[in-house]
Design a protein around this nucleic acid. Structure first.
Lengths: 187, 187, 187, 187
DNA sequence: AATGAATGAGCCTTCATTCAT
DNA sequence: AATGAATGAAGGCTCATTCAT
């Protein structure tokens, strides 16, 4: 049997792509990504059919990673506690991996990302949305769609992470201020 | 003072750039932009030194246009009324010109935009921030920076506009729901 | 002697190569050929040293197949009858396997095919040329080389096959018209 | 006003393409063609949108050149004289420009050449076909299509040229032998 | 200033061939 | 022998910018 595709290599490429896209934007060359990943340029295409495919997979993996992080050890308690748990892990993740957060921000507004990929990420995030939905149904936005409320949460998380990254010493304060603001907004 | 012929061309290029960047992203070729603007391809570079310069100017002009729109007929009344006025004009502008809103979203996360351009836009937005600041000082976020509160306002406006564009029939509802949410968040 | 498993694979590759070269030209990728043949891509090179080698073998096999077809049941009668027999089987073969005919046409003008391969095919076709030579010696072209007359026969056969393929309903008519024309030309 | 496209450059590219395609086949790299033409690689694409377009234009130009050559000074006399005139100029052209003849042979069997290009060439060749048609209507092939008879003429011309090129000393003999053979075939 | 051809580095992707398994 | 991942040179084409006219 021939060599099997190496998951390590795949991850190396994905990781290099994240780094380069974070610093150079989506214009980052596949050859540069390969070099940064320590693989020959052709290998990018043995692991991803096209650059577009690579970028979409990167988007999915980052979203999944974030979701997994956010849902880990989710308490069974009341929605507010749960939302706070999610919020904390979410923003801490962003502050810990500013590069990943930046890439996600760029990919999210890019039209390279397919509807299917967005859908995929949305499904993975279902448990998170479930929590948000419970908060929503008890709050002032009960008559608005979950999508809208979810988007507001995302927007506030993004803003909060940006400031946590910008002023690391104040990170904890921003994180809490962000949550309080969010809670007042949607509860 | 009447616009010179040159100024017309400059605007044509800027406008075409907005259209193409909205649909193709920052990768839009200068030659395509020139064609869409109805000017020879070389002219792009007599009006803008580089593509980067063009993109930065576009960013500034859009920001300025938005600020002017938002501040027009600003009432002298109390901060809430003023913020509501800004909010309404802001989100209506975005809903009316989805292309411009989209470009602004893309440019904002791009690293093509220089710190100077961001600074420039920030200064132009000073009166808006002044209003936000008054609200802030009377609200729960009084101990957080204006920058943070301003960013939250921007994030919520962006989210609101996205939904107004996505569901035009519900635009008015989203606009008001957005404002109410914002108000609860920051007042 | 039964075919070995290997020989089956070799034929599968050759056959797939014919199909793909017919539709995509000589640019057909070896990996595509392997896939079409249902063998792993590496196997192409265990059966053929290089792509060039594969292509030359394909040329030889097609030529040999054609010669065998054409000479089968060759009557012992007079040269005209024999030439007619050859002509009929030749053009019918082309009409029955338009893909093979097309590949042969492409390979013939390609410089991938070595002189040795052409020589090899020529030798295999000796009995056919023998018949043509007899006709030639009794005809007006007796003072011209056999190569020339042979080339004329080939050219007319090619033209005839093209029309038989293009207008299948008229195939029989073209076949006979072609022969009559040929006969008048060289007898 | 800017520089105007140089017809000289266009011809240089076309000519270099002919040379390289003759020796390397259609796989000849556009960069090599540019180099051979003495122009920068990018210029190939300011004169031809794609390589395919370049190749099609080359086909058309060669066909047109050949038709012009063949029809020059066409006598008004009887069809046989006319056909002989065409035949002579045709085969002499091929013998004089073996490279062009070779390219035409390759392009003709290639599927890079569009139906439109073939149609275009066919129209240009109308006067030639007109002559062939007159011969055809008085000959044994009167019941076959002009296309078929035309194809036979072309096939025999091609064969004749090949031998004129291969044995230049015998060129004149092959040319006449070819015509006689043709005449017997179709008259 | 206006025009658009000229330029060549750079990009994504393909592919024949090799070789670890 | 069988398999298919690995490799990197090469290919067609794009594009920001320059500059002759």
């Amino acid at each position: 049997m021939a060599r099997t595709k190496s998951e390590d290599r795949r991850q190396a490429i994905l990781s290099a792509a994240a780094t380069l896209i974070a610093s150079e934007g989506l214009g980052a060359a596949t050859a540069s990504i390969a070099k940064a990943a320590g693989v020959p340029s052709g290998s990018v295409f043995t692991y991803f059919e096209t650059k577009n495919e690579l970028v979409n997979q990167l988007y999915r993996e980052l979203k999944l990673e974030l979701v997994a992080e956010v849902l880990a050890q989710l308490p069974k308690k009341d929605p507010k506690k749960q939302l706070h748990h999610i919020w904390t892990r979410w923003t801490d993740w962003g502050a810990a991996f500013p590069e990943k957060r930046r890439v996600l921000a760029q990919l999210t507004v890019s039209d390279e990302i397919s509807a299917a990929s967005r859908e995929h990420a949305l499904k993975a995030a279902a448990p998170t949305l479930e929590v948000i939905d419970q908060v929503r149904q008890q709050g002032v936005l009960k008559s608005r769609s979950l999508a809208f409320v979810g988007a507001i949460v995302e927007a506030m998380a993004a803003t909060t992470m940006d400031f946590m990254i910008r002023e690391p010493k104040q990170a904890a304060h921003y994180r809490e201020a962000g949550f309080e603001t969010l809670w007042k907004a949607i509860s």
